[in-house]
Design a protein around this nucleic acid. Structure first.
Lengths: 158, 158
DNA sequence: TATTGTTATACTCTATAACTATA
DNA sequence: TATAGTTATAGAGTATAACAATA
């Protein structure tokens, strides 16, 4: 097996993983019966969990969504009681977003459910295989990730 | 690092990979300036390349799309000259789908472009790392893949 | 009656523009 | 004038139903 063969195989495997059917399957596991979260709002929930507190713009940049989408999905999560909006302490144009306690608990439960999928799938690997794969997978995804330019919807200027 | 830690890290990495921003980035590389193919029609093109010749239903099952979606996207590819419809030799209800020469050449070029992304990203790995990762990644994705039930749009029956 | 392929409809997501308020 | 947040509008994708033709 040459390096190019490996690259082709990895490309094919990634392609399969990205197929909607498989993506949705993973998201179904993740979502399960969680109220108020779906495939589209989860990144907002998860991203905010990582950031702790953030403005809409910061969160949008973190997860690669537009501000307009982020604010809309944040509203949905707010209605579901998972997210709270507060006035920003120093900039009164901005909004401080944070998860509620329910939101924190929800995202934790969801992550554990997803984690279990992979723990199960890797259960019969050796400890060395598991560690090596995890390390290399991080490296690979970091290496191919999109430049983290958030598509900020320019109001109008040319 | 425990097994559960590895599972959590892999889950997080997969989550990042599935984010729309990164997905679209990969698809942009794949598509480049290819005429008539986009993020939604590519799976049809690629799936048909693997099957050689197939009916609409067979192709739909392979790529996990509905028949209705598959037929619509096949029409787009047909208009772009990448795919041809022929009458099925034995079942005159069915249609035999196949790529045209242009379609074959197109999918080959696209695959090579995607392959290059991964070859580059893995360029500084050892040969052993590359081989091990490739093998395990196949195994992982096979292990978490959705049961390949094509969501066949039941006409009406309860 | 069931299946194949297709088209038609309603619904959701996504992208762009437009608006208000504050820096 | 530029930025933060939001809402409104138009376009694209997706899912469900409905249809004609053949098995």
């Amino acid at each position: 097996m040459s390096r190019r063969d490996d690259g082709a195989r990895v490309a094919a495997t990634i392609g399969e993983l990205l197929l909607r059917g498989n993506r949705s399957h993973l998201y179904r596991v993740l979502i399960a019966d969680t109220e108020g979260v779906d495939e589209t709002t989860y990144p907002v929930l998860s991203g905010l969990a990582r950031l702790g507190t953030a403005t809409t713009s910061e969160l949008a940049a973190r997860i690669g969504f537009e501000r307009t989408v982020t604010t809309r999905y944040a509203t949905r999560l707010e209605h579901a009681g998972l997210l709270a909006r507060r006035p920003h302490p120093t900039d009164s144009r901005a909004t401080a977003l944070a998860l509620t306690d329910l939101g924190e608990r929800t995202v934790r439960a969801m992550r554990e459910r997803l984690q279990d999928v992979f723990v199960d799938a890797m259960a019969d690997w050796t400890a060395d295989e598991s560690a090596t794969f995890t390390r290399l997978f991080d490296r690979l995804v970091a290496g191919i990730a999109a430049p983290q330019t958030a598509p900020s919807s320019r109001p109008s200027s040319p």
